[in-house]
Amino acid sequence: MPSETPQAEVGPTGCPHRSGPHSAKGSLEKGSPEDKEAKEPLWIRPDAPSRCTWQLGRPASESPHHHTAPAKSPKILPDILKKIGDTPMVRINKIGKKFGLKCELLAKCEFFNAGGSVKDRISLRMIEDAERDGTLKPGDTIIEPTSGNTGIGLALAAAVRGYRCIIVMPEKMSSEKVDVLRALGAEIVRTPTNARFDSPESHVGVAWRLKNEIPNSHILDQYRNASNPLAHYDTTADEILQQCDGKLDMLVASVGTGGTITGIARKLKEKCPGCRIIGVDPEGSILAEPEELNQTEQTTYEVEGIGYDFIPTVLDRTVVDKWFKSNDEEAFTFARMLIAQEGLLCGGSAGSTVAVAVKAAQELQEGQRCVVILPDSVRNYMTKFLSDRWMLQKGFLKEEDLTEKKPWWWHLRVQELGLSAPLTVLPTITCGHTIEILREKGFDQAPVVDEAGVILGMVTLGNMLSSLLAGKVQPSDQVGKVIYKQFKQIRLTDTLGRLSHILEMDHFALVV
């Protein structure tokens, strides 16, 4: 994948999101292997301009796509893939009243899908469409860049269908997702969380590099694949309309690839034109409109599966009536509230959605109805927002919020430890010299600072030695090549209790 991002070429006709291997024109390309080798690009942008032909009021008969309808489940399912879809609609009884809503608040519980998330729908649909058009064949390999849930859905379907599955996901995604993927037989590649989507090191860039190296491999490409919004247009939206008897006044959905909100909203605009569509985008993402909503100094966020630093091709923002931004604290607070007060075992993005819903639905009156999409299960986040310690460490809970008995030293300040200034190293000294210094002084790690004293990161003896043994660096290389740029900081005025929580999850903390 090139470091400079080429513009994806656009073909003359058809839909841009065809499933299957992508040609340089962004659509299915038939021909000899030699032709494909000559024409197939190194990668295709996940934010390529959409060429979708959908228009409100256009006859369904003019759609270029294969459409399906929700099917009634048999008493005995032939395999677990038949437990994807037909998820329950559940009334939220307490939270709406707590925040003064007059309307009825309903939750579409997508964590009841077989793999635990709304992404099971698009995973199965992308595979079925690729099999139907002859792209996927027995023994082929599926590769997908994902925040985890699409990966789980694909790995689940691949396990049943017999495909090899490789999932490329950023490091910030939970260990629970990784464990589930491994249990399903998927191979996992992790990428830096802070890598831009168009960087060769991003999950998108690495996935395309693997595709170019592995024979008979395919990126189904949830960011561009029409099967993504079509899955929701054909099934999720129809289920909502049936469950609500066609009567709903507002739908609120958090947005990642945009397939969920695009597919549902398009069908609702056709069948229930008075329904307002509300999009939820986390602070630090750029999906919301108008652009002024996205202006923030924050560039990272903890909530998973929603928000991006690019506009995915499948996201149709014209069908969203209003956007709201959400933050991590309210997302996790509301997710825990949904679990504790409503018994809905949902993930953090569901918290984002409901946090926005109780604001947006203030305009609705008694007798009206708001539906929220709860995308995934708490299963993926047992060591994250479900953990009091994690919430404390991230600053989303305060010590006084917890009532468990603490040891005698818990409320003492870090400054009472009488710490001395640490050994520091410059980023320009060599790895070999740094190892000598650390061994001589008896230290395992040291902060790396520039000549102005600005902290650049941390270097550890173990990481340097393993990097040297693996051949990633040489003793003569500058130590700046092996620094940890993500590390926890703590102030002298913070409590030892807070430091204790940090050290339970990290090997060190830097006192500043």
Rank of each mutant, 00 (worst) to 15 (best):
S254M: 05
G31E: 11
P2I: 12
L210N: 05
K30C: 02
R121I: 04
G26D: 02
I127F: 14
S175G: 06
L210T: 08
S174Y: 02
R164Y: 13
D35K: 02
I44R: 13
N225S: 07
K172C: 02
A155S: 11
I261W: 04
T53I: 13
R132Y: 02
K247L: 09
H203M: 08
S32I: 08
C165L: 07
K98F: 04
E144F: 02
D35G: 11
D179A: 08
D86G: 15
S175Y: 11
K39G: 04
H67L: 10
K82F: 10
R224D: 02
S73D: 02
I127H: 02
V189W: 09
C275E: 02
S63N: 14
H22S: 04
A158D: 09
G20A: 13
I264V: 11
T191G: 02
E213G: 12
R164G: 02
K267Q: 12
T141N: 11
Q222W: 02
K102W: 05
E187A: 08
E62R: 02
G26S: 15
A226L: 07
E37S: 12
L105W: 02
R58I: 10
A24W: 02
P33R: 10
T135L: 12
P273D: 11
K172H: 02
L248P: 15
R45Y: 02
A69S: 02
D221R: 02
K247A: 12
G259F: 04
I240T: 15
I142H: 02
P138C: 12
A130M: 02
A195W: 09
H218Y: 09
F111A: 06
P6Q: 15
P215Y: 09
T68M: 04
W208A: 14
A159S: 02
H66A: 06
T68A: 13
I142Q: 04
G246C: 02
F112W: 02
A71G: 12
P70V: 02
V160L: 05
P16D: 08
R209M: 08
E171I: 08
V178G: 04
L136R: 02
E270M: 07
H22I: 02
D249V: 05
L124S: 11
T235S: 11
L105Y: 02
K98L: 07
H67F: 12
K30D: 14
C109D: 02
R91T: 15
T146D: 02
A155V: 02
P33C: 07
